[in-house]
Write a protein that binds this DNA or RNA. Structure first.
Length: 942
RNA sequence: GGGCGCUUAGCUCAGUUGGGAGAGCAUCGCCCUUACAAGGCGAGGGUCGCUGGUUCGAGCCCAGCAGCGCCCACCA
């Protein structure tokens, strides 16, 4: 083996082997265990969040595969409608072309081409991460069979009236010129103004205080062109007399009523609200209550129309309504129109005042454009009936959130769920299977010919398919069963629905998780998964979101392969619009990564992710941890080298069971049992952080730091018998082999590489560690006496090392040790473990003394004093200082304990065992204190 | 406005039914000891956000406050 660990030399090799041998397929034997991947965008690339979740999913998959379960990790990608269309449009723009330069078919063809060229990125990156999904089952949401499932679901829900079409206000994204769902709108605080406009009263009516106008306050002046009423609170004395009267809408000169509605907050603004039912969701509701007309004044581009479009609720056009708009606004962008309207109010003397005002501005999550509530025809899912069983499934524990608290978020949303707008005015996606005739009748079906046949429409009737596509999340919602072959009745559908656990982030609980639960229950009658493990979100080392604009993004592949500084800077600043920000990012990057990023390898990265996977909601990714775990890999690598150096070509008891286990052998085997039990418990609870710590402590502290050192005296010393040496070799190799299997789910590559070398020396039947069985706890191998005795040994060794360290005695210099006040057990242990002591504490000699000892440095092991005579070693003052430190510590402890035990309440009320324990501790502390003080006095009297 | 989360060592975080404050990194000291200097051995460092309560006993339970963050919601 090479002297140090180089991940590049082993990772690709093993991945290819595994894939070629088809180890990733479900075995067909054992209990089904299935994880569904949250399908990433097909044209995207994996970011740190993916890498993190994939590590968790792969670790679970590998663990269950080794446990003998029939394990499937179902993988695939999402067509991601808007996101993908945006990317392709941007590429076209770079060539000086636009989407609309092409026909729909041509454009979609271009998207498919782009998918072909870039669609492999994700799966290549997954391979680099060591992911082990069944590649043969890789799915894409636009594949034929998944598209078919989408169509079937749409048709079925439409038949049941759950999917319907309607003209309503939707969140309209003017940039994409498409509707988006409520979830895709982000409301953020922004600074704006509250404009106060005067609306003259009609017919000579006056307000209670004699004014001839009302003052309305608005944050959106441009919508006033579509006002159809002014609302006041029914109980508002100021305006009570005006209810039922009219105002003249300025600029438009339309007569509109004053209506009374509870919605109005008397305290806010002037207590008069302009009502624009076609451009505001609240006003829409008010308008509905008062049967006001819907006056649409904006085009899909969010420009003012030349003539308003007027409808009644339900969508029927109103013919005789005054739909005239001032011509100077026709074709004007909404924000230009706003400016002009304000100017016009001002010049007409109708602008009362302008207040600064903080408001929530709705913006499209992808476009960033201000969302416009717009009256359009869209398709909706009436989700209420689907939501009920989905809520119950969680309430009754059929589906469990981990951490549990997330159920509250889920309930809150589900119990207030609104109908889901599923149509999008895009080209890339599942086209809605609906056809219209010239009269505007709608026919839903699998194809035009089916529609014609079912509805007796011959060729004389012209039919046009709906231009819209479905929301991407509509197909994602079917993922749990569509990937298993639904609507066909496949064995997979039977076996892997429900899947075992969904691993995902809380950011898509509504977008995806809730909708999968609803759709899967509706169409299969089963829940989609039994558990939902909600992971935290990966942030940078200070808790900031990783984003291109912040310039703090890390690419998981760069952590695996390493990257030089200039390339990293180039990556982080490429495509930056703002050169100033680019400069800042470059400066920060050069400072933080002066030497670029080292190639840490996949296993170190995965281990870091596991170690960071606590219950926390934000996970701050610290590169220092990756380096630490890379070093840990190197540690394991070298431990394996040591083991192999001492076992290869030797009789390691593989077939010859005639060997003798030392105290160290029995101890490490016991500790291994504890590690297995603890690890499995923690994995069951999805505490990957604790599980990682368990394995880290066992393999590094117990195995490498202690056990390997304890094996040396046996292997290197002729005083030990062949049986003893064989026993130690057997333990060295078998514990390491088991440890590799324990670690494999987390660090697949290095464990396979090492395991393959150990394999010839153990009784292993499988070809690869990834299809070997997971270690099992064996109570009978746990030896409490070995654990106790080793603790004794450690105490003594650490005591001597402490003296060395603190008094600066060279580790190379052997010391003499005297033991005082030893009991029977101490004598027995000394007798049995003298060899270990001498080697690990580097002793010249070790003897028991009865009374007078020379001036010494002192450590305590229980009641036994461990004395290192000072002669020729160190100065007395240093040891006195050291003793003082110890004495101070003990005195503090002593005071605390005696205070506690002096408290009658404690002694009376605390459980007897607790009191006894405290008493014992106090007694111990007192003895230790006395001994150290005695030592100190002795030294000082010299 | 409602809901949720966080606050523990310089940094990033654990702390399991309340009973001796932990890890990794960083820092300091000694050491190139034949697996590993990407290493070994040892050490220092915390009024557990604040206030009050329950309790014999609180990092942990309860109440209030402060700061940070996230989600949801129709104040024009």
């Amino acid at each position: 083996m090479d002297k140090s660990y180089t991940p590049q030399n082993i990772e690709q090799k093993w991945y290819d082997t595994w894939e070629n041998k088809e180890y990733f397929k479900a075995s067909g034997q054992g209990d089904p265990y299935c994880i569904l991947i949250p399908p990433p965008n097909v044209t995207g690339s994996l970011h740190m969040g993916h890498a993190f979740q994939h590590t968790i999913m792969d670790a679970l998959t590998r663990y269950h595969r080794m446990k003998g379960d029939d394990t499937l990790w179902q993988c695939g990608t999402d067509h991601a409608g808007i996101a993908t269309q945006m990317v392709v449009e941007r590429l076209l723009n770079a060539e000086g072309k636009k989407r609309t330069d092409f026909s729909r078919e041509e454009f979609i063809e271009k998207v498919w081409q782009w998918k072909e060229t870039s669609g492999g990125t994700i799966s290549q990156q997954m391979r680099r991460l060591g992911d082990s999904p069944d590649w043969a089952r890789e799915a894409f949401t636009m594949d034929d069979d998944l598209s078919n499932a989408v169509q079937e679901v749409f048709i079925k829900l439409h038949q049941e009236g759950i999917i319907y079409r309607g003209k309503r206000l939707v969140n309209w994204d003017p940039k994409f010129q498409s509707a988006i769902s409520d979830l895709e709108v982000e409301n953020h605080d922004e600074k704006g103004s509250l404009w106060h406009f005067r609306y003259p009263l009609a017919d000579g009516v006056k307000t209670a205080d004699g004014k001839d106008h009302l003052i309305v306050a608005t944050t959106r002046p441009e919508t006033m062109l579509g006002d159809t009423a002014v609302a006041v609170h029914p109980e508002d004395e100021r305006y009570k007399n005006l209810i039922g009267q009219f105002v003249i809408l300025p600029l438009v000169n339309r007569k509109i009523p004053v209506v009374a509605d509870d919605y109005v907050d008397r305290e806010f603004g002037t207590g008069c609200v302009k009502i624009t039912p076609a451009h505001d969701f609240n006003d829409y509701e008010v308008g509905k209550r008062h049967n006001l007309p819907l006056v649409n004044i904006m085009s899909p581009q969010a420009k003012i129309l030349a003539q308003a479009e007027v409808f009644e609720f339900g969508g029927k056009p109103i013919e005789n309504y005054d739909n005239q708009l001032p011509q100077k606004y026709a074709g004007l962008d909404r924000f230009d129109a706003r400016k002009l309207i304000i100017e016009e109010f001002d010049s007409l003397g109708l602008l009362e005042k302008i207040d600064d005002h903080a408001l929530k501005v709705p913006r499209g999550d992808r476009s960033g454009d201000v969302i416009e509530p717009l009256l359009t025809d869209q398709w909706y899912v009436a989700v209420e009936s689907l939501a009920k069983p989905a809520i119950d499934a969680v309430k009754q524990g059929e589906i469990k959130f981990i951490p549990e608290n997330w159920d509250k978020t889920y309930y809150h949303w589900m119990e207030n769920i609104q109908d889901w707008c599923i149509s999008r005015q895009l080209w890339w996606g599942h086209r809605i299977p609906a056809w219209y005739d010239d009269q505007g009748n709608v026919y839903v079906g699998r194809s035009e010919s089916e529609v014609r046949q079912e509805n007796n429409l011959d060729q004389s009737v012209s039919l046009k398919q709906d231009n819209d596509v479905l929301d991407t999340w509509f197909s994602s919602a079917l993922w749990p069963f569509a990937t298993m072959g639904w609507p066909e009745e496949t064995p997979e559908l039977e076996k892997f629905v429900p899947s075992s656990v969904l691993v995902t982030g809380f950011d898509i609980i509504f977008f995806w998780v809730a909708r999968m639960i609803m759709m899967t229950m509706k169409f299969t009658g089963k829940v989609p998964f039994k558990e939902i493990y909600i992971t935290g979100l990966i942030k940078d080392e200070h808790g900031n979101k990783m984003s291109k604009s912040k310039g703090n993004v890390l690419d998981p592949i760069d952590l695996i392969d390493g990257i030089d500084l200039n390339s990293l800077v180039a990556k982080r600043t490429s495509g930056m619009m703002n050169p100033k920000i680019a400069e800042q990012i470059e400066k920060r990057t050069r400072k933080q990564f002066a030497d670029g990023i080292e190639a840490y390898g996949t296993d170190a990265l995965r281990t870091t992710f596991c170690a960071l996977a606590s219950t926390s909601r934000d996970i701050n990714f610290d590169l220092g941890r990756v380096e630490g775990y890379r070093n840990y890999c190197n540690k394991l690598w070298n431990a394996a080298r040591y083991v192999l150096m001492n076992t290869e070509g030797e009789d390691c008891g593989k077939d010859n069971t005639d060997f003798e286990l030392s105290i160290a052998d029995r101890w490490i085997i016991s500790k291994l049992q504890d590690a297995i039990v603890t690890f499995e418990k923690q994995i069951k609870e999805y505490r990957f952080d604790l599980a990682t710590q368990t394995l880290y402590e066992f393999s590094r502290s117990d195995y490498c730091d202690w056990y390997l050192e304890l094996s040396k005296p046996i292997l290197y010393n002729d005083n030990y018998s062949a049986e003893q040496k064989r026993g130690t070799r057997h333990t060295l190799i078998n514990v390491l082999e088991t440890t590799m299997r324990l670690l494999h789910p987390m660090m697949p590559f290095i464990t396979e590489e090492i395991w393959q070398r150990l394999k010839p020396m153990v009784n292993a039947s499988s070809d690869s560690i990834m299809v070997a069985s997971f270690p099992e706890f064996n109570e009978s191998l746990r030896d409490q006496k070995a654990i106790d005795d080793l603790e004794w040994l450690q105490k003594l060794i650490v005591g001597v090392r402490n003296i060395r360290g603190e008094l600066n005695v060279s580790p190379a210099k052997p010391v003499n040790v005297l033991l005082k006040n030893a009991n029977e057990n101490d004598r027995r242990c000394l007798q049995e473990y003298r060899g270990f002591l001498s080697a690990l504490a580097k002793l010249e000699s070790i003897d028991e003394v009865s009374e007078q000892a020379p001036p010494s440095a002192t450590a305590l092991a229980g009641e036994m004093e461990v004395l290192v005579p000072l002669a020729g070693l160190i100065d007395v003052a240093a040891e006195v200082g050291r003793l003082n430190k110890e004495i101070e510590k003990l005195e503090k402890e002593n005071k605390r304990l005696s205070g506690k035990l002096g408290n009658a309440n404690f002694v009376e009320r605390a459980p007897a065992e607790v009191v006894a324990k405290e008493k014992e501790k106090l007694a111990q502390a007192e003895i230790s204190l006395a001994k150290l003080k005695d030592q100190k006095n002795q030294l000082e009297s010299l």
